[in-house]
Amino acid sequence: MARTLTFKIFRYNPYDSDSTPFLQDYKVEETQRMNLFAALNYIRDELDPTLMFDFVCRAGICGSCGMMINGRPTLACRTLTADLPEVIELLPLPYFKMLGDLSVDTGVWFRQMEENVESWIHTQKEFDPAAEEERMDNELANKIYESERCIECGCCIAGCATANVNADFLGAAGLYRVGRFMMDPRDERDEEQWFELVSTDEGVFGCIGMMACGDVCPKDLPLLEIMAYVRRKMSAAAMTK
């Protein structure tokens, strides 16, 4: 019953001038409930201490471990080997800057995106420590939370045709973030400001709507719904212009 898995892992160290990209094979005996977090750590602990990859929470919440697993961008820590064939090919997420083997620089990309969409509440109000908080309907609070659940893993960007040809495209994650602030009444940005930000080819009109992003998002976020919401808002704004 126990399988011997063959991992074919992309190797390349950009900081080593002698390094050239290649696929390296590792054999691993599968154990019960093994996930890729356990498997990759086993490889590094027992077979090859030079292998580079990123895990932080190992619980599917922090977004560190996105990679291409048999051709599909997803989180390694919550992928069980039992759901995969005997031969498992692991490649780094495309599009992002390569840091070594399976490790890519998603952090810098997301910070740039956040600066671009000004990912914070725009308000003229000062916080008053003595005052009661502004009231909010619980349903709305839940809706905002829902639109905030993106963990910045980058899978949707890696799987997106537009992002791969237009480096400044906000991507599904970027548009999702826009939607998050657009629906938040605490954010005072008006339609004009939003229009300027997202009614471009880098924004909502760059998206060709093939929904690769929605298929791969490991948090099952309703990307389609939110992008449609942003697009609707922008079309309405365009009409009144």
Binding site: F127, A131, L140, A141, N142, D184
Partner: peptide, 11 residues
């Protein structure tokens, strides 16, 4: 409350 002001969608 400060975090609410800056955007946390508390239940």
């Amino acid at each position: 409350r400060e975090m609410a002001h800056y955007g946390v969608p508390w239940n």
